[in-house]
Design a protein around this nucleic acid. Structure first.
Lengths: 162, 162
DNA sequence: GTCCCTATACTCGGATAGCAAGTGTCCGAGTATAGGCGG
DNA sequence: CCGCCTATACTCGGACACTTGCTATCCGAGTATAGGGAC
């Protein structure tokens, strides 16, 4: 089981955008540079975030990305769902309906008991992600980050935003 | 994000083995036949369950697999962990330590705030799976299954176990 | 009738191809900007 | 000096190769059984 690496990039990208002054935009290439990841591939994931309505894009010179709504209104779940094509990890193929014991499809309970447990576990996972927002990530970074990083980041932002 | 299809097979296989009379064994090929899945591939997952100490194998004629311990002592988590090579879905690559804001490694907090949230969510998922056992699956099947299936299963067991 | 031996058929187990999805990259279409020109 | 126009450079966005890991399969090694033979 593997979550796409893009989820990590997307979460960090949203958090970084949340740190910018209101209405400031940051191009995909700069965002990739800030995180030290391949620009083209990073851009791909930003497009997915845009398609999901989490971030907005501005074209042309001085263009770039910015959050589409408040960081406190964007949950981790929103981001994961945007990047990951299918967030349902366990997929029941109804093997209980195959083999020598198979009977008419209508006579089976609507959901397999094993699938029910797996779905329940994933729901617990989802609930945790829905309870956390990008603002929480911003807060934890502000709280935990070394002052030296804060200075470097601020300086880099000022240089890039001109 | 995708959980291996083998997880479903493994869970159903364990549940089926739990339905057998004590100390009875069932060959991999029969187990695959019962679930209508490719025998060779199914056998591969059974080997993983064996390596994890969840089921036991007996070689030679009249050999096969059986549970290594009580169904109530085997959690869903045990099975998932056995089949899935790596159960950690989110993998933090520490991109916060890359790019223009990078500083000495020792000055970073031990765990990234974003990763902490993701790990927490997975822990919630894991906890749910640890709370459910194969016995629970057996109970739900006994409760929900159509009598017709029960009859067919019993008949098939008797025929196969000779 | 009982015990032992041997051949057998069946089991598991690891090593080997095939395929799909995620990973990584590129170039083209579109647009806000900046400079130059005219009034 | 001010406003408009045009060329430009930069942005995003979708279409195209590559690699990793899951999917699927096979054949060989090992073993408990079943039958036959000897005592």
């Amino acid at each position: 089981m593997r979550l796409s690496e893009g989820v990590e990039w997307a979460l960090h990208s949203c958090t970084t955008l949340a740190l910018l002054p209101p209405d400031a935009t940051l191009p995909a290439a700069r965002l990739a540079e800030f995180h030290g990841v391949p620009p083209a591939y990073c851009a791909k994931h930003l497009q997915e975030l845009r398609a999901a309505g989490i971030i907005e894009s501005t074209a042309g010179r001085k263009g770039g990305y910015r959050l589409a709504r408040l960081a406190s209104e964007i949950t981790f779940w929103d981001v994961v769902q945007a990047v990951e094509s299918d967030t349902r990890a366990f997929r029941c193929t109804e093997i209980r309906q195959r083999g020598p014991t198979a009977i008419a499809k209508a006579r089976y309970s609507p959901v397999c008991g094993i699938a029910r447990v797996m779905y329940g576990a994933e729901q617990a996972w989802r609930r945790e992600l829905e309870a956390r927002t990008i603002q929480d990530a911003v807060d934890s970074i502000v709280r935990d980050a070394d002052p030296q990083v804060a200075v470097k980041a601020l300086r880099w932002f000022q240089e890039v935003l001109t």
